[in-house]
Amino acid sequence: MNERQIQFFQYLFVLSFTLFDLAVLSWIGRLIYIALQLKDTVNGSLGIAIVAGSLFLVLLGVFHYLFWGLKRAKEQV
C-alpha cells in the first residue's frame, strides 16, 4: 500500500468511529424522544441520557484529539 491508500484508510477509520459514536448518540436521542412521547419516566431517562451522551461525546473528543494530534505532530521532528 502506498501512502495515499494508507491515508485513505486512516480517514475511513476515523470516519467509522465517528459514525459509530454518532449512531450511539442518536440511539440515546431516540430513547429520549420515545420517553417524552409516551411520558414514560422522562426525568430518569433524561438523567441517564445526559450522563451517557456526554460520555460518548468525550470519547469522540479523545479519539479526534488523538488522531489529528498525532497527524499534526508527525511533522515536528
Binding site: Y65, L66, L70, K71, Q76, V77
Partner: peptide
C-alpha cells in the same frame, strides 16, 4: 498495510509521545 493504517502516522516524536 494494516499496520500502516493503524499506526496513525506514528514516528515517536516528542510531541506525539506527549499526546499519546
Amino acid at each position: 498495510g494494516l499496520y500502516g493504517v493503524l499506526s496513525l502516522g506514528w514516528r515517536g516524536t516528542e510531541r506525539q509521545q506527549k499526546i499519546l
